[in-house]
């Protein structure tokens, strides 16, 4: 299972690295979201700095949606879905591999967005341990849930509109948890943040298990 996962993840990441779509489109979009927030809010009175945790994670979710759409668009062409199914790879491995590839892209995106908010919103980062833990666990949750719902929407004519509708309500706990944990870290009160990590971890584990079990039946049909 893990060998298959690494194969699929490697394939997806190589594809992204060579096509540069994530780099040339998703990353600029994420930066654009940060700038749009500045237009929408008052940039001079410290509103952006105070709202950094929420804005940061909303930016992650929106640009993460693009990365997820992309992850399943590359499987849609040339009957890739069928060849993936016929390849003899373990479906659980395919799920984990795609989730890992999405997770790696999200991590890169999150680092860049972190630099972005530090520069543009003059946010001072504190409580690094909590920040890093939040990023890792929340990313695992987003990648697992996103991959599961991504394959549900994949291969349909309405996938672009369906995925956000399905995924954003499901990811609400991740948004709440990661935002609160970030707030706690930035306010130098990490003790308030760790319970949220627990919630995020439960979410990530639940969706990873659901994906490992449910991916086989989903790949079989259509």
């Amino acid at each position: 299972m893990w060998r298959d996962a690494l194969l699929v993840a490697g394939k997806d990441l190589r594809l992204e690295w060579r096509s540069r779509v994530a780099l040339n489109q998703v990353v600029p979009f994420a930066m654009l979201v940060l700038i749009v927030f500045a237009f929408a809010l008052d940039p001079d009175r410290g509103v952006l700095e105070r709202a950094t945790p929420g804005l940061y994670w909303v930016a992650v979710l929106f640009s993460g949606l693009l990365a997820l759409q992309r992850s399943f668009t590359i499987e849609a062409v040339d009957g890739n879905r069928d060849s993936l199914r016929l390849s003899g790879l373990d479906p659980a491995g395919i799920f984990l591999g795609k989730a890992m590839a999405v997770g790696v892209q999200l991590l890169v995106l999150e680092v860049l967005l972190g630099i972005g908010v530090a520069l543009l919103y003059t946010t001072q980062f504190r409580g690094w341990a909590l920040l890093v833990a939040t990023v890792v666990v929340a990313t695992a949750g987003i990648a697992a849930a996103g991959t599961l719902y991504g394959v549900l929407a994949a291969g349909l004519r309405v996938r672009e509109t369906l995925l956000p509708l399905l995924l954003l309500p499901v990811l609400a706990p991740v948004l709440i948890g990661s935002t609160r944990a970030f707030e706690a870290a930035l306010a130098d009160a990490p003790a308030d943040g760790w319970p949220w990590i627990g919630l995020l971890a439960v979410f990530a584990v639940l969706y990873t298990v659901a994906g490992v079990l449910g991916f086989g039946p989903l790949l079989e049909e259509s």
Binding site: Y149, L152, P169, P173, L206
Partner: peptide
């Protein structure tokens, strides 16, 4: 599959919103 995850999702969302 969406329906199977519906009730667990409702519980998680409820819990997180309550906190």
């Amino acid at each position: 599959i969406v329906g199977l995850l519906l009730f667990p999702n409702v519980l998680i969302v409820r819990q997180s919103v309550e906190w």
